[in-house]
Design a protein around this nucleic acid. Structure first.
Lengths: 127, 127
DNA sequence: CTGGATCCCCCCCGATACTG
DNA sequence: CAGTATCGGGGGGGATCCAG
């Protein structure tokens, strides 16, 4: 690596800020409804494109491909193309993807755990 | 309604589907970047509106109020208004809100843990 | 079957201005 | 300081068609 000590200011600061902005960027990518539902649907399984579309209720063709590309780009899903006809493409979570899945699972658990509380709070709020 | 002879027409099914759609709805509400960042910023602390806006980098006035309303409506943050002049409004996570925070924390941890892997995957993907 | 591309509409979100 | 209202641009996201 190139020495960064020649720059003015503390080098660690720049690194930290860069890492943080990257983290923020990843967060923006991944913290969206469809990505979560896809990761959740994949779970431990390997699924084809069409299976995934059936599994994730209400997702459109476009959103599915878009999010799958995003997840693939970030190394969270593995995309395997079988050169057959008709084509067969299978998606699987990578190790980091399964890590993400754990946190999504936790959030799903949290949701179901607090369904009642939230429903009550809403009724109280919605005069 | 039509009788469904060969289908599983058990009454619990309707309840389950209702709970699921509610869960899905909550998920859609909460699984967004700004909500996460707000929850993360609050943590164990109580913050005023303006403090929160400073804390959550890049958030606009509008998005902050909007998401705070949403979180309040779902009973995840407590909104306390001090009738002084100028007004002082403080936001705090409720118990369920802190539960959510735990999962968001986990996700932050996951993000930082895999920064390197993701960065590499991206470089490989972005020809 | 998978995936890209195009059209198009709606709504998200930022900027600004105004109340209490 | 906190919150609401309004307007306008950009992009999210659906429907559809075409290619491999």
């Amino acid at each position: 690596m190139v020495a960064k000590h020649e720059l003015n200011g503390l080098p660690e600061d720049a690194d930290l800020r860069r890492a943080d902005s990257l983290a923020r960027e990843i967060f923006s990518d991944v913290a969206n409804k469809w990505a979560f539902l896809i990761v959740e649907a994949l779970g431990e399984r390997t699924l084809r494109f069409s299976e995934l579309r059936d599994e994730v209720e209400g997702i459109s063709h476009k959103m599915l491909t878009q999010n799958l590309r995003m997840l693939e780009r970030n190394g969270l899903v593995d995309r395997k193309v079988h050169p057959t006809v008709p084509p067969r493409v299978e998606y699987t979570l990578t190790a980091p993807g399964r890590g993400l899945r754990a946190t999504v699972d936790a959030m799903c658990g949290w949701t179901h755990e607090h369904l009642g509380h939230i429903e009550d709070a809403r009724r109280r709020f919605d005069v």
